[in-house]
Amino acid sequence: MSGPDAQYAAFLAQGRLRLQRCGGCERHVFYPRVLCPHCGSDDLAWVDASGRGTVYATTVVRRRPEEGGAHNLCLVDLEEGVRMASRVEGIAPEAVTIGMAVSARIAQQEGDAIVVFDPS
């Protein structure tokens, strides 16, 4: 048995972005939990995510070149109604704009599978 964080990470490692959906109130839940924060139900089941999202807020973290340089940090609202921190890749960090349609992609970073987004 493993908890919801480990299950989420294991799905990502298999190349699948999955979210929890609550059987009590039918809302999606992210980050993974054992209780629904909307209704308190523990009836949470994994479902595949569409991967379609919209940039809700964005910034450029201005790190020095020796610290990796400037990079994007954003919040993305997924079609399922959950929000996640991430970054948009493939364009300049300043070019990421609120309202931009984006698609999830699973990337490898320091040995972990993480969700990043590309403009769609």
């Binding site: 910034t59 940090l73 970073q109």
Partner: peptide, 25 residues
């Protein structure tokens, strides 16, 4: 904060910068 940390936040500034971006928008 394991669901934010992989994306290189600069706490707490980056969080307030995100809020600022939304308020401006």
């Amino acid at each position: 904060l394991i669901y934010e940390q992989p994306y290189g936040p600069r706490y707490p500034i980056s969080s307030y910068a995100l809020a600022t971006s939304r308020h401006m928008h």
